[in-house]
């Protein structure tokens, strides 16, 4: 068996994400397997990232993979999160939003108007 090719791309590095976002397009037509890793470095209180894997035939026009299965990246559940992307064609990216859970009126350290953000590394691990 020929040795399999692999490549891990850092799609976002030390990036602070807020509101809606998309990651840069990444070409991976050579890969049979793809897996996202999100490592949370920092986050505002109760911020969560909701993301969907998107695919494209040309790197310009995008739709959700798998009917839009949404992943929740909740820093409260640990710093590292991962999920696979299968049968994706040639291009991959993430579309997501950073959301804030409802304010806790009893928590004086939880200002209602603080914008939710997460600081992350996003890896795309590919294998032929």
């Amino acid at each position: 068996m020929t040795m399999r090719q692999s490549f891990t791309a850092v799609i976002e590095r030390n990036a602070t994400l807020a509101g809606e976002f998309t990651t840069e397009p990444y070409e991976a037509a050579w890969a049979r397997e793809a897996r996202w890793f999100v490592r949370v470095l920092d986050a505002t209180r109760r911020a969560r990232m909701l993301v969907r894997t998107q695919i494209s035939p040309d790197g310009l026009h995008w739709c959700d993979l798998d009917g839009g299965t949404e992943q929740s990246v909740d820093p409260g559940e640990g710093p590292l999160h991962s999920w696979p992307a299968a049968e994706f064609g040639g291009w991959l990216r993430l579309r997501g939003t950073v959301v804030d859970d409802p304010d806790d009126p009893d928590d004086p350290d939880d200002p209602a108007d603080a914008p939710a953000s997460v600081k992350v590394l996003i890896y795309l691990a590919l294998k032929s």
Partner: peptide, 13 residues
């Protein structure tokens, strides 16, 4: 933020 290189099949719309 110099971006990861890509193995591209030079695919266009």
């Amino acid at each position: 933020d110099f971006r990861p290189p890509q193995l591209s099949s030079c695919t266009f719309f």
